[in-house]
Nucleic acid binder design. Sequence first.
RNA 1: GCGGGCAUGGCGGAACUGGUAGACGCGCCAGACUCAAAAUCUGGUGUCCUUGGACGUGGGGGUUCGAUUCCCUCUGCCCGCACCA
Length: 872
Amino acid sequence: MLHPPLGIAMASPEERYNFREAETKWQKTWAAQNSFRVEEPSSKPKYYVLEMFPYPSGRLHMGHVRNYTLGDVVARYKKARGFNVMHPMGWDAFGLPAENAALERGVHPGAWTRQNIGVMRAQFQPLGLSLDWSREITSCEPEYYKHEQKMFLDFLKVGLAYRKESWVNWDPVEHTVLANEQVIDGKGWRSGVDVEQRKLNQWFLKITHFAEDLLQAIEGLDRWPDKVRLMQHNWIGRSEGARVTWPLTDKAGKDTGETLEVFTTRPDTLFGASFCAISAQHPLAAKAAENDPALAEFIAECSRGGTSTAAIETAEKKGYDTGLKARHPFVAGKTVPVYVANFVLMAYGSGAIFGCPGHDERDMEFARKYGLPVRCVVAPAGEDPNAFAAALEAGNVAYVDDGVAINSEFLNGLAVDAAKRAAIAKLESLKLGTGTVQYRLRDWGVSRQRYWGCPIPIIYCETCGTVPVPDKDLPVTLPEDVTFDTPGNPLARHPTWKHVKCPACGKNAQRETDTFDTFFESSWYFARFCSPHLADRPFSETAAMNWLPVDQYIGGVEHAVLHLLYSRFFTRAMSACGYLNLKEPFAGMFTQGMVCHETYRAADGAWLEPGAVAKTGETATYNGQPVTIGRSEKMSKSKKNTVDPQSILDTYGADAARLFMLSDSPPDRDLEWTDAGIEGAWRYLNRLWRLATAAVEIPEGPLPAVLDPAAAVVLRQIHRTISAVSDDLEKFRFNSAVARTRELTNALADMDRGVGGGNAVFRFGVAAVAQLINPLTPHLSEEIWQSLGHTTILTETPWPTFDPALLEDDTVTIGVQVNGKLRGTITVAKAAANDVFEAAALALPAVQKQLDGKPPKKVIIVPGKIVNIVAA
RNA sequence: GCGGGCAUGGCGGAACUGGUAGACGCGCCAGACUCAAAAUCUGGUGUCCUUGGACGUGGGGGUUCGAUUCCCUCUGCCCGCACCA
């Protein structure tokens, strides 16, 4: 597939840039000079650049290369701008793939993970990234995870962690709990069998404690993508409404003494209530089922259904009448039936609703199915209420929009908002409800029944209950001698590990055998980088407060909610426990696009690797057989459309790979990897190198005071480019920065160096290009810089400056329109008066022709921009 | 269903707060060099008709002297959430 450019072998050394030698040389130089070590102490302002740390899956993929290249551009640019840059790297090293490897190949997860880290660390080397490796951290090592065990116990003390029985997705084959993301179409992602709903004791972190703050603070994250902010906003899902209490009666109409509490955002529609519905997992449902086998069967059926999105989507709305009745809070003597319904979620609100079919689509569907009354209590303003109500009550479509309350006693005539307030006031005076705010966000369940994670430092004692592991016994480390030959958690069946003495009473007790969700480690690693080797604490508060928040964080959108929200929570929780005093961990966030590639399929439908396919123009073949070329999709092993970074680095070098990734499309959009694209980047690097070779012969010296006008034009372009590229780099417009740099390169190549000052300007321009492109292609630019005779390296050289006076020409060329259509251009002195613009524009033959001898009706002059003549 | 985004040549994409649409690159075409090819260099390349024009930023409409940019509307694609009461 990737034929090495033939020129590599053919060209003489002075014609071809030898990236192999140069890239290795500069990587060694930077390492020897500790160029990317954080300065401590430093008088410079700090700048913390962080890319999401990788999971050590075994090899780097193109997505990694893109991610770390983007961060590297920022880090190198900020360093040149005079910042003390921290740009660290580490390993998100706990996780399921390590256990799968153990299962499939009989390797210990730890050995597998550590070996992968070794391979990947070596793969990072040739990319030429400006990383401070002295701060490397590995989350699966006790030196790292012991701190989060302590942190968890602190969270427990302040009530931010708790244990509760809750419903979870249970895979009966793998004997483990699955995250919602691991349940696909109601089946376990690996086992492929139906997932069950089970009630298990789980540890939770109380992220809901900060729901309001996490929501409010989104507004302040002004350097985050709007998309991510919106997603978090929706995820937290704030709803204002009321909790309403409904006293219950039995089948005979006698009060049971119990009440049903429901949450509603529409207390103004209470007079339209025709039923209540509770979740199958609601305690009242279980109680009602005690004497009703059919109900018990219905509840079991609901639990089997799974919580997967697809299952819910297609599920028919079903209910079962418990026989219980609920007393209406406002209407004396009125009761409504209480159903168990499969669409009511236990985890939201109180797990119960009241149904108002007239003004809720779902309630309407339910009411029609079970023959429940439909009552109209809101009519659009300006319509005849009686006619509207009659139509609504006869039809099957709920009215959910704004309007005026009708058929609602004391609410009649009020608009929806006012009616809500009045209803809540009434509920509160009757002590049958209260205004409240409900969030969609739920507490974070962190228990996982897996081996390769951080042990939860808890001991269960029959006498003392749940006992935190004392500080002196931390860390709780994973046992090495585990087996993966049977399903389930190896920690739970380990012969000795879980058996301990109770730290409180000394009797026999058992360890918690669950481990933390791997999102736990990534929720605070950005703080650990601030003091990565501190032994007794997770990080020094001083260091963390100095470096945090991260100035620029970079990663994929797939973490827009979970990881980023957890980290925001953790920062607040750590602050609550005195570790630091900060709310937001990431001041700037950038989400990069995916790396994509065309897909290829053989006639039998099998996916083919790009390397196996012979492509000629629009058609492709495999072993002489035709190949279907599919759309460009995210590189993935399953579709075989991956390109190994290693082979690209070997063939073209890091700079070419970096340049292509940066120039092809804007960093937040998907990037399509093509052979032609990388070759284009490679060509440019060689062209630039040849150009620089010509500049080397020109002795260095100050620019002459008087320049030939042609040279002066180029000089102005150099200054304009410095200004524009600086701006582009600040704003993540790397593709545009490359385009402008190439433009300048073209101008330098085309300029007449023989004119007065031409050589000096040329040399100055080449040096400027090397500086401007240094964050993008650091090796080649160092090489050019050195060849120009500099004795210090470019990496330690400040960013070039521009002279604002040289940004603009004295003359300006602008378009001349007649009736908005371009008819020509004029070039006039920039400072010229309007009548000069007008005269020059009217003098154009094309303009005269359009005017046809008549005087213009109107002339619009925007100095420096355009002249538009309105013809009669 | 709800929420959000996007739509510009054969392709990736430029165009700052409304002001010369298509920068820069890829691809393609022609030429130079070469026995030939590769590499490199030069020129061309939005579409349509004849020089000169006309048309052109998904479709339709609007505001404006002037719209890729602002407003309305329709279509298509992508993403997030998904019975959230």
